[in-house]
Write a protein that binds this DNA or RNA. Sequence first.
DNA 1: ACTTGACCCGGAGCGGACTCCAGGTGCTTC
DNA 2: GAAGCACCTGGAGTCCGCTCCGGGTCAAGT
Lengths: 129, 129
Amino acid sequence: MTDFLSPGQVVERSGFSLDTLRYYERIGLLDRVERGPGGRRRYAGEDLEWLGVLRCLRDTGMPIAQMRRYAELAREGDGTIAERMALLIEHDEQVERTVADLRGQQAHLKQKISWYRTQLPGPEAASER
Amino acid sequence: MTDFLSPGQVVERSGFSLDTLRYYERIGLLDRVERGPGGRRRYAGEDLEWLGVLRCLRDTGMPIAQMRRYAELAREGDGTIAERMALLIEHDEQVERTVADLRGQQAHLKQKISWYRTQLPGPEAASER
DNA sequence: ACTTGACCCGGAGCGGACTCCAGGTGCTTC
DNA sequence: GAAGCACCTGGAGTCCGCTCCGGGTCAAGT
């Protein structure tokens, strides 16, 4: 029956803080959330789903400005599907690059670590820092 | 003969901006760089190597505070090798987690993209946004 | 009747990592 | 000797993404 979620429940399920939820709403990342009597927000299931999308985008490093763009397109309806898809594809490529970079630098890191490892057991001296 | 690099050269080779180089020096990420006559900085080969390490750490998302800790340990000499190694290992694990998370969210992203793809060609209607 | 607790609002504040600025110095190059 | 250029300094400013604050409201519990 109670198809709505209280702010507290949304905090729990979305993992966003109350402040962040209000912030996202203010800046238009989230549609204006419905209010119950007393002015309290009541989030619909859709809202929660949308928050899942935001979490995905955010956690993959999409800047807020771009998320807003995406939200705006989504609000505009079915006519923007191609554009939204393009946006996500580009972002996916960005994520790909990020991961590749990370892996590259991580290789250096591991090298450094194994160099340290050679310095530890034996009592020999060394030069590098 | 000129074993030293000018600030401009270091910018070029390290990829850090002049301002960032000075900033890193100020906050102790970089040892006080030697000066030539006229007070200009002259970077040694070691400095450049160290900048390479910083780039690696930075690009893998290590916060500056931790880099400073690492720099401090490095300055303290060979006695801190184990600790430095531990720090890097922990960071490496952090990177691993980051990549895993990224991959996880990227999977959702790709799912979303392929959902959009189904919406494009056919003229059928749909419900999700 | 009163206290709690969950929420509301607008606006200020924060932490991180730079980046920019104004004014100054000193070597070349016309 | 004037102009350019690369560099110097300390300190202020910027951008991002929240996070906190003070004061207020409402409903439920004791």
